[in-house]
């Protein structure tokens, strides 16, 4: 799949933002006043900024309101509804914590649940795609949720939780890669099933339907860049998981904390780039490509 920068930025940043909302919602940290203001500002910037980045991906953002209507069937619509509900609930909750010095606990828990519901919906958009075997796994939502919670804990200064959750997320990342590398073969979709010509013999794509590029090839059959996948995986894993954990294990200082956050975000951006670039859509089979 084509790794569109807007979607990579959106899923990474909003995942972090909604993760931070979760910890703020359950009162970890339970600061009020100016300190709370800074925390909520970061969360709103990440989550809201991510949503704006995703709007750039649309052909007709001016019709965006329609995307709130199909929550019964569509994960993308559910994501939109949940995201806006989270921002609204957390906005109200933030007013209490910043300006009134009070913590509306039930509202906070509701916001925390909505925040993780949003991340789940984002993950399900990918996990539901039968056409992209690498994505279609229970591990996809597990990875997204653990990353959001782990990254959120990192931003919220919850060192112990961040350590636990980043180790869990790292393990899920490895499992997801391991499973993803076998998923296409396991899906049983081949050129033979795509064309129905398998019984007649060995199939080879002889001539494509068009001599130039087209939307399908640009969007779904992204083969450039996979060459460096191995190196990028090592970089993403080192920066996204290993280095932050090491930095958190040495005695805490704000500089180390900031370094851990920067390293984590850079690593996850790289992992998210691979999430798209390495994903093979079955339509490539019609072109004799993967």
């Amino acid at each position: 799949m084509h790794p569109a920068p807007s979607i990579i930025a959106f899923t990474t940043l909003s995942g972090l933002g909604f993760g931070l909302f979760f910890w703020l919602g359950i009162g970890m940290p339970g600061s009020t006043g100016m300190v709370a203001f800074v925390f909520f500002a970061i969360a709103f910037a990440l989550a809201g900024g991510g949503l704006i980045a995703s709007a750039f991906h649309l052909g007709h953002p001016e019709r965006g309101l329609l995307a709130f209507t199909q929550w019964r069937s569509s994960w993308l619509s559910r994501e939109a509804v949940l995201a806006v509900a989270t921002l609204a609930v957390m906005g109200l909750y933030a007013i209490g914590r910043i300006f009134l010095g009070t913590t509306w606990v039930p509202l906070g828990w509701l916001g925390a649940a909505l925040a993780q519901g949003t991340v789940l919906a984002t993950a399900m958009i990918y996990a539901q795609m039968k056409t992209v075997p690498r994505w279609r796994s229970i591990l996809t939502p597990a990875l997204f949720l653990s990353l959001s919670l782990g990254g959120g804990a990192l931003l919220a200064g919850q060192v112990t939780w961040a350590l636990i959750l980043l180790v869990v997320a790292g393990a899920l990342q490895l499992a997801w890669w391991w499973q993803g590398d076998r998923a296409f073969a396991a899906s049983c979709t081949t050129m033979a099933s795509a064309t129905g010509l398998g019984a007649a013999g060995q199939i080879r794509a002889f001539e494509p339907p068009h001599t130039g590029p087209n939307y399908l090839l640009r969007e779904m059959v992204h083969v450039i860049g996979r060459k460096h996948a191995r190196k990028l995986r090592i970089m993403a894993f080192g920066m996204g998981y290993v280095l932050p954990v090491v930095l958190l294990l040495i005695p805490f200082s704000h500089v180390m904390g900031a370094l851990a956050v920067i390293s984590h975000v850079a690593g996850i951006l790289a992992a998210r780039w691979l999430f798209f670039a390495e994903a093979e859509h079955v339509v490539g089979l019609y072109y004799g490509k993967r």
């Binding site: 993308l76 992209v132 939307y215 969007e219």
Partner: peptide, 22 residues
């Protein structure tokens, strides 16, 4: 008139039967 051009339906189709008009 209701399509926002998100492209998700083209991802969901295994046959490559949908194309976004540029």
């Amino acid at each position: 008139d209701a399509c926002i051009g998100c492209g998700l339906c083209a991802w969901a189709c295994p046959y490559g039967a949908r194309e976004m008009d540029m």
